[in-house]
């Protein structure tokens, strides 16, 4: 479980986020430009909140009062930003083995589960949007994260691909039994995917329950 109480001030908005992320998929919906991606980056350690605390079990990732700030490399976060974010110049297998924690055996198993095993030696940039999302998810999971952060994982896909990719992502994420925050602007997607649902409104994160 990841607990947070952070305050982020940016040029165009401020964000106060208090809550805890439980095992399973939690969706976060909100308007574009409201700070959803910023919140995810703050959890991943890619930006530094002005104030607050983040801790995962007994481990402190952020405590501004004590001057603690763990870098993303030290946090064990699986992060999938929006868009096509494979390493385009590498093969699918090289993408999956990028983390030093990845193993070939696990990579092959996960590729099979996500139906990308036939592309093992294909350059990642040559894959379709849906296949690239699968590669990105597999790569994130192979780093053995304590929490998974997915920023609009289906937004770059055509409508006919979304359903299949959604089912594949959900199946693999639920199996991992780790907390997963799935950001989307699509309320319908949030309801279908999320075991827990949050809303970002007026710079605050509100738990809206099931």
């Amino acid at each position: 479980m990841i607990k947070f109480n952070i305050y982020i001030q940016r040029d165009h908005f401020s964000l106060q986020a208090v809550g805890q992320l439980e095992t399973g998929i939690t969706t976060l919906v909100g308007q574009s430009g409201g700070g959803k991606s910023t919140f995810l980056k703050a959890l991943a350690g890619l930006i530094r909140p002005q104030q607050g605390r983040i801790h995962v079990d007994a481990m402190v990732w952020l405590d501004t009062e004590k001057g603690i700030f763990k870098k993303p490399q030290e946090r064990r976060v699986g992060y999938m930003p929006q868009g096509n974010i494979v390493f385009p110049h590498m093969t699918v297998l090289d993408n999956l083995l990028y983390s030093r924690k990845s193993s070939l055996e696990e990579a092959r198993k996960l590729m099979k589960q996500l139906h990308i095993d036939k592309y093992e030696k294909t350059k990642a940039s040559l894959l379709s949007g849906g296949e690239q999302q699968r590669v990105a998810l597999a790569r994130a999971l192979l780093a053995k994260p304590q929490v998974l952060l997915l920023d609009e994982p289906l937004s770059a896909l055509d409508w006919d691909l979304k359903e299949q990719v959604r089912l594949d992502l959900m199946a693999v994420v639920i199996k991992e039994e780790i907390p997963c925050l799935w950001v989307t602007h699509d309320r319908e997607e949030a309801q279908v995917v999320g075991q827990h649902q949050w809303r970002l409104a007026d710079g605050r994160i509100i738990s809206s329950g099931l």
Binding site: K41, S99, A140
Partner: peptide, 15 residues
């Protein structure tokens, strides 16, 4: 170079 790609590498533990 897309900074998101570099960010992903950071979360994967790369220096």
């Amino acid at each position: 170079v897309n900074t998101d790609i570099e960010d992903v590498a950071r979360t994967l533990g790369a220096s």
